[in-house]
Structure formats: structure tokens, C-alpha cells
Computed example of a mutant assay.
Amino acid sequence: MKFRVAALMAAAVLAAFPAFAGEIDSSVDARALPKGKTTPLGLYLTPEDAHEALTEEPGIVFIDVRDPLEINFVGNAEGTDANVPLAFATHDFDPKRGGYAMARNPDFITGVDAVMAREGRDKDDPVFVMCRSGGRSAAAAAALAKAGYSNVWSIVEGFEGDTNKKNGRRDVNGWQNAGLPWSYKLDAGMAWQPERKKQ
């Protein structure tokens, strides 16, 4: 009897979260990418490619890997399943960088694992990762590939896009500049909420 109940529950979960069956189309020429945006898996999307795939297959897991405060002040793409930061901004100024130093999130992989479990997906299902302009998403894709993920797609232009060499602004490309849906508002399911230590 217990086996039958477990089998019925498993069937219900699979029905609620069907496996991704479609193809993901990419318009990115991987040969034209700078080294900092390349990944071991070689899977790349523009924001428009990602939005089209997510519209056709909303079950694809979409993770924003930026710092939570970055998302809070700059905005987030609609349809994002979760924010799992690859790194956090510190209060330590880095003069070489011309900005605040970043500290790697030691819980990045476990955070992504938890999102995938919550969404009923495994390491072979497609995962889209996005950051500001494609560098951190490439690093996130590499870290996930090392952890056994086989279908991680980096959104190469990110949320804000690349820097315009003429004016220094991020107005060249990216999710926002493509006019794709985004918002400043976060919901609890998407927001980064690390487990609190029990007191």
C-alpha cells in the first residue's frame, strides 16, 4: 500500500512538472564572444532568445545570479524563478576594479540545487542564468557544469547589457534595453532568502 501511494505521488509530481521537450533556439555566435563570457558547455542566449524560450516553455528554470541588492535597486526580469547570487558585494573598495570587491557565495550550488528541487527539475533539465552583462552568468554556468549540471544556458548580454564605449552607460543591449518585461518588485519566491541559523 505504501509503495502504491508513493508511486501515485511520484506520478502526480511528474504530471505537474513535465520534462522539457522542446528545442532552445540561440542566435548567439559563440565565436564572437569575449573569453569572459564563454562557458564549458557552450550554451548561450540573447535576452530575446531566452524570453522566447521561456514564453514557449515556462517550466524552464530561470535564475538571476546577481547580488540581491543589485536586483533591488536595478530591477529583475519577469519570469525569473529565483535569485541565487554567485557573489555578494562587500564594503571593501577595490581601487584596481574601481568599485567594491565581490565575495563568492559559498552556498551558490546548494542554492541552485534547492531551486531545482523546488521546481521539480534535475541537473539535465535546462537552466537559464543571467547577471548584469554576461560575465557572472558565464562563471555561474561553469560552476554548475563542474557540479554536474549539463544544460546551463548563459544569457550573454545580461539584464543591463554591455557598456557603451562612447558614453560609459549600459545602453547597448541586455534585457532592459531590449524592452522585455521587467519590474522593480520582488516576490518572496524569487527573492534570495538564505536559510537562517536556528538560535
Rank of each mutant, 00 (worst) to 15 (best):
P40G: 02
G135N: 15
G59Y: 00
S154L: 01
D81C: 06
A188M: 11
A19D: 13
A141S: 15
A140N: 03
R31V: 12
R66E: 02
Q176L: 13
L45M: 03
Q199F: 09
A101P: 01
T39K: 07
E56L: 10
Y149K: 06
A87E: 05
F73M: 08
A16G: 10
S27D: 13
E157I: 02
D94K: 04
V172C: 07
G174K: 03
M116V: 10
A103Y: 00
G135T: 12
R97G: 13
P18E: 10
L14Q: 14
N177V: 03
A82C: 09
M9K: 07
T38Q: 15
K146W: 01
G179L: 11
H51A: 15
A19H: 13
K166H: 09
L14Y: 13
D162T: 14
L86A: 10
A77P: 02
Q176W: 05
G161L: 08
G148P: 05
I109T: 13
G161F: 06
I155N: 00
M1Q: 13
A50V: 00
L8G: 09
I109K: 07
A147T: 04
M116E: 05
L45R: 00
G161A: 08
A6W: 04
E119W: 01
A89M: 12
E70D: 15
K35R: 13
D64A: 06
D49K: 06
Y100A: 11
C131K: 03
D29K: 12
G148V: 05
D187W: 06
F17A: 15
Q199A: 15
M102S: 13
G189M: 00
A87M: 10
S27Q: 14
S150N: 13
T90W: 07
F159G: 01
Y100D: 10
P85S: 06
F159D: 00
G42A: 06
F93R: 11
I109S: 04
G168P: 02
V61C: 03
M130Q: 13
D107Y: 12
D113E: 15
W182I: 04
G98P: 08
G158M: 00
P106E: 09
G79K: 05
T39I: 08
K146C: 05
F17E: 11
Y149T: 08
A138Y: 08
K123Q: 11
G59R: 11
A50D: 01
N76F: 09
T163E: 14
I60W: 03
W153D: 06
P181F: 01
R136Q: 07
P194E: 07
A117N: 07
V84L: 01
S137W: 02
G120D: 08
R31I: 07
W153K: 02
V5F: 03
L180P: 04
G135F: 05
